[in-house]
């Protein structure tokens, strides 16, 4: 359970398993529900285009507890594939992204950071985990850099 007590709905795990096994889904965007009680699937996509995915994160909204809409956070899983330098083919890594923009209001910032552990723990088989707090952090170059490093 997360430190916030926010729970993860089974559909989150189902979507993730589908991505993991089928390799048909390219990414999943999760959000915390509007009543701030559980993490749900906002969208799954078969389109692996990073930039359109990135735009979705940049435009994400959340309501604060008074119902006012503002910049929001999200969680996402993206099947990141990239060419190995030596021409040894491609590699793909299932990457978890906690998107918690620094310019979001206090409330969503708090909620997305304190609930992250719950969703991360529910998803078995993540190859990388990225904490992203501004637009630069989710540039393709930056992601690739972090994902392809080391293991």
């Amino acid at each position: 359970m997360a430190q916030s007590g926010v729970s993860v709905t089974p559909e989150c795990i189902n979507a993730f398993n589908e991505l993991k096994l089928g390799k048909d889904i390219k990414y999943i965007i999760y959000k915390i529900s509007d009543d701030w009680k559980e993490i749900v699937v906002e969208e799954t996509s078969k389109d692996g285009d990073w930039n359109s995915f990135r735009d979705k994160l940049l435009n994400a909204k959340s309501k604060d507890r008074k119902g006012k809409e503002g910049i929001g956070g999200r969680y996402a899983v993206f099947d990141v594939s990239y060419e190995l330098e030596s021409g040894e083919g491609t590699r793909s890594k299932i990457t978890f992204i906690a998107w918690c923009p620094d310019d979001a209001p206090q409330y969503p910032r708090m909620m997305y950071s304190s609930s992250k552990e719950a969703i991360k723990r529910a998803l078995n088989g993540l190859a990388a985990d990225i904490q992203a707090n501004d637009a630069d952090d989710i540039e393709w170059e930056s992601i690739l850099n972090r994902v392809s490093k080391g293991r």
Partner: peptide, 16 residues
């Protein structure tokens, strides 16, 4: 304090 204020006000915090 602010962090605690948000957590302790959550409905989902009941379980903790």
């Amino acid at each position: 304090w602010i962090g605690g204020s948000i957590l302790a006000s959550l409905g989902s915090f009941h379980q903790l």
